[in-house]
Design a protein around this nucleic acid. Structure first.
Lengths: 233, 233
DNA sequence: CGTTTTGTTGAAACATTTCAAAATAGGTGG
DNA sequence: CCACCTATTTTGAAATGTTTCAACAAAACG
């Protein structure tokens, strides 16, 4: 996973990215046209409402994608890490970006121009199928999220979020999540007020489900969190 | 829009369905393999958790798609009417259906087998692109719905729902919505308790934004509903 | 070091849910 | 067509979960 690699595309190609089923010829074709870009924490990759002319595959770092809703509150619906693709939706639908993508941890991305994406989708059925599957999986996740939002309490959603973070980003030797989020980001992921997240986190802390040291959160009792997140009431 | 038409596929082909960019040859190919099915109110087309071997294009009637969440409460995320496609997601991802589709108003559908869908996606780039766009649009809608759910009050969401129903299904001469939903269905669309929907509906009624006669709801004051749904607080 | 941002706590206000009870509507079979 | 039974809708009152506001503490930043 050496990002400095001169043949970045081949790294993507071999790994679990959307490019994995391209032909060698197509990889060579892309190689010419692709751009590698780097972004620092808090930089914005693209903004809600603005047109974008290409999509991005994350090579390293973490990107947060959010929609700005009422009273300019954010709702974060996704954290993207290496090998995940961003922005293809707005590119394909030819509509302005429907969300903002900003950098949570310094990152490198591979920028693929609109024309390339179009060309690949329309000429390589396998690629089209893979992209469709990505879209379908995201759609399924999204529907689960709405259902959760509609039916679960804040406590259940927060427990679920912590488990998701553990699952996606892993933990270090001290069981601390390998991702650092502000209380505000956490609240914008479960759709609540900052204060509510704080109160619930300290409730979990008192119950010894988690340990909290600033932004480092350790998952101590996964089983109990699962019981809260999935069993219910 | 004569559904009894012997050449149903040609109807779909000419209308705004996903089939509109197929070639004449492909339509002929499909013609052989497609099945027309009819369902009565409350019948289930496919169920969450069960495998499905094909997708469906609605020809007439209304289908509701919902996920069954905790304590077997439904969350209805979509009402599908003529020319809309159902179930392609689970077919393409080869996973069990992640939602249940049941019939709200007697309907006719065109059933397309898995193999056909695959064949079309992988051989016709335009079709793949159109399907991708459908998926992307649904994904975008879904993200907007979560954001609403996370950030809007029940009152705002109910106002928004009423406007959506008006927009999608239209109204008759008396401004009554051309769709009839139980209070329970309404509550399962905005993610709340039945009683809450009832109370808010009668609040809207007292404010003369709507008129309610059983399941027939008339939209009287669209502007005010819009103000509630979109402006806020 | 002071200034700004982020995190924490308490108390009151508010929106929504829950439970219970009653009213109404919708079938079904006699 | 009525009477009955069931499902749906409505209402009230109490309980709950969550938000809001305000004040303060702690951490991060330049």
């Amino acid at each position: 996973m050496n990002v400095e690699d001169n043949h970045t595309l081949h790294v993507l190609w071999k790994n679990h990215s959307i490019l994995r089923r391209l032909t060698p010829d197509e990889i060579n074709y892309l190689e010419e046209l692709v751009e590698i870009r780097t972004y620092k924490r808090n930089e914005i990759i693209f903004s809600q409402g603005k047109r974008i002319n290409g999509c991005y595959i994350v090579l390293s770092g973490i990107v947060k994608q959010f929609k700005t809703g009422m009273e300019s509150r954010e709702y974060i619906f996704r954290l993207a890490k290496a090998y995940e693709i961003l922005g293809f939706r707005s590119v394909l639908s030819e509509e302005p970006a429907c969300n903002t993508s900003s950098v949570l941890e310094d990152c490198t991305v591979c920028y693929i121009r609109k024309e390339c994406l179009y060309h690949l989708v329309t000429t390589n059925g396998n690629f089209a199928m893979d992209l469709l599957q990505v879209a379908c999986r995201e759609l399924e996740e999204s529907h689960s999220m709405i259902t959760d939002m509609a039916q679960k309490s804040l406590k259940e959603r927060l427990a679920e979020l912590l488990l998701m973070l553990r699952n996606k980003f892993g933990v270090n030797e001290q069981q601390q999540l390998n991702i650092s989020l502000s209380r505000e980001d956490l609240s914008n992921m479960v759709g609540t007020a900052i204060e509510s997240v704080i109160r619930l986190l300290s409730e979990f802390k008192n119950a010894r489900y988690v340990a909290v040291k600033g932004r480092r959160i350790a998952i101590l009792d996964e089983k109990s969190l699962e019981k809260i997140a999935y069993l219910n009431k």
